[in-house]
Every structure is written in structure tokens, then in C-alpha cells.
């Protein structure tokens, strides 16, 4: 039994079958990559996992509980954090505040009217936030406005915001999209480091094969909304169906 179980998920947008009978099982404490050509349904699948879309049929279970029909903030409170394709951070706030907010969300739940406490007085949370900023090597930028940072830094900040919540499952939607090679390698190193330091399950949606093969322990290949194969990276590399799907796209 995996921590995340997707069974028989279908999703239609009008006449387009975006997902057709998708089954997926992500084992705890592994890095699971979901790859596939453009339009394969990777992002639709991810949106079904976080509550942004509701599948037409099928079930999505996280740790034995269904996530279907729950709102994004409820799903996050269950222990699923998400990194977006373009970093979603609080641009008007400082780096430190960006990290403090998930700390509060983790401790106080989805709403609490703490209108008379003072942020710096929450010693425990401040320490936690500082520690994560040290981990991602951003402690020197703690008072900088998040919007003024480079894209790579925004990405690292977003990951720090997800990690400080100690999620059980971290979903990454093309974490290296639009990055230079050097930044991509830094991100890979960062993710490896994260994985080495803590018990965390990651599901990565990715285009870049270099990233996929350096990180993933299991790979699911999606094509036209259905999973083609699921296997280890070594086996995937030589798999004829995968080659066909990708080569077919390259030629077309």
C-alpha cells in the first residue's frame, strides 16, 4: 500500500479525455517521477491530487483517506505540499515572513485570529524558520523582499516554505522549468540533500530527463492521459514503449 493511491481516475474537459483510467501508487519515502510528452495529462493529474480539479470518476487516497472533494487548504493540512511550475511566493513580504506563514499554518491550522500576538515573540517558530533558511542557504536574505529575488532564489524559497511544514508528500510541478543548466543542477542537489536529511515522499512532474534520471527511484510514463509503464529508471531508459512515445513526439 503506497502513501498515495490513485485508482481509475478519469477526467474529461468537454470532448477531450485528459485522464483515462489512471492508476498510480507512490510508496512512502521514495521519489516518484511522472513523465510524459506535452498534453499527456501530467498537470491535470497533479491538480486532481491537490484539490484544484475533481476527477469525474475514480479515487485518490492519501494515507488511507480520500482527498476528493476537499479544498486545497484542507489537503495541505493533511500533509501534502505543492511546488508550482512558476514559483508562487508572497512577493510583497520578506523572505523570513514567507517562511513564517507556513509555520503558523502548520501549528494553528487553517484559521486562527491571533490579532494581538507579535510575530517576533513566537520564538519557537522563528527558530524553525531560521533553521530552514539556513538549510536552503538563504539566511542572509532573510529581510529581503521576496519579489526582488532571482527566479532560482524564488524556487528555493518556495521549497523552503513547503519543507518547513514537514509535509509527508511533496508534489513538484516541473521544478526546473525555465532554469539555466547551472540552476537546474543546483535544484537537483538541493532536492537530493532534502531527501537525504528527512523522511519525505516526493512526486515530481518533469520534462527534463536529466532531472528525472538523477532523482527518481520510480518512474511513471503518461501518454495521452493513460499510464504507459511504471518501472525503475534503468528499465524505463530502454523501454520500447517509452522510446516510441517520446521519439514519436520528436518526429511529429
Amino acid at each position: 500500500m503506497g502513501i498515495l493511491e490513485v485508482k481509475g481516475v478519469n477526467k474529461r474537459f468537454g470532448g477531450l479525455q485528459a485522464l483515462g483510467n489512471v492508476n498510480l501508487s507512490v510508496t512512502e519515502n521514495t521519489v516518484h517521477a511522472i513523465i510524459g510528452p506535452n498534453g499527456a495529462g501530467k498537470s491535470t493529474l497533479l491538480n486532481c491530487l491537490v484539490g484544484k480539479l475533481i476527477p469525474d470518476t475514480g479515487s485518490v487516497m492519501f494515507d488511507g483517506q480520500s482527498v476528493l472533494g476537499r479544498k486545497p487548504h484542507e489537503i495541505n493540512q493533511m500533509g501534502i505540499s505543492r511546488v508550482f511550475q512558476t514559483p508562487e511566493i508572497f512577493g510583497d513580504l520578506t523572505v523570513m515572513e514567507n517562511v513564517m506563514i507556513p509555520c503558523f499554518a502548520k501549528r494553528d491550522g487553517s484559521f486562527r485570529l491571533h490579532a494581538f500576538e507579535s510575530v517576533p515573540n513566537e520564538k519557537e517558530l522563528v527558530e524553525k524558520a531560521e533553521q530552514i533558511l539556513i538549510d536552503v542557504n538563504m539566511i542572509d536574505q532573510r529581510n529581503q523582499h521576496a519579489a526582488s529575488m532571482s527566479r532560482g532564489d524564488k524556487r528555493r524559497l518556495e521549497m523552503a516554505m513547503c519543507l518547513v511544514q514537514e509535509p509527508r508528500l511533496l508534489l513538484l510541478d516541473e521544478p526546473t522549468a525555465g532554469m539555466a543548466r547551472a540552476d537546474t543542477n543546483n535544484t537537483i542537489d538541493l532536492l537530493k540533500e532534502i531527501k537525504a536529511k528527512r523522511d519525505i515522499t516526493m512526486a515530481i512532474i518533469e520534462h527534463d530527463m536529466h532531472v528525472v534520471f538523477s532523482l527518481a527511484e520510480r518512474i511513471t510514463v503518461l501518454a495521452q492521459g493513460t499510464p504507459l509503464v511504471e518501472d525503475t529508471p534503468e528499465n524505463i531508459k530502454g523501454h520500447p514503449k517509452v522510446q516510441e512515445a517520446y521519439l514519436g513526439q520528436a518526429h511529429g
Partner: peptide
């Protein structure tokens, strides 16, 4: 303005999507 509540309100102005995906309603 100086409280965690005030910070949450500024976060709403800044990015409501991230707010929801951070587990806050």
C-alpha cells in the same frame, strides 16, 4: 499590523493561491 493575523492579511493581498496551498483558509 504587527500581529500574525496582520501578516496573514498581507499574504492574502500578495498571493491568495499560495495562501490556500499553504493550508490557510
Amino acid at each position: 499590523f504587527r500581529s500574525p493575523f496582520g501578516m496573514m492579511l498581507r499574504a492574502i493581498k500578495s498571493n491568495q493561491q499560495r495562501m490556500n496551498y499553504t493550508g490557510l483558509n
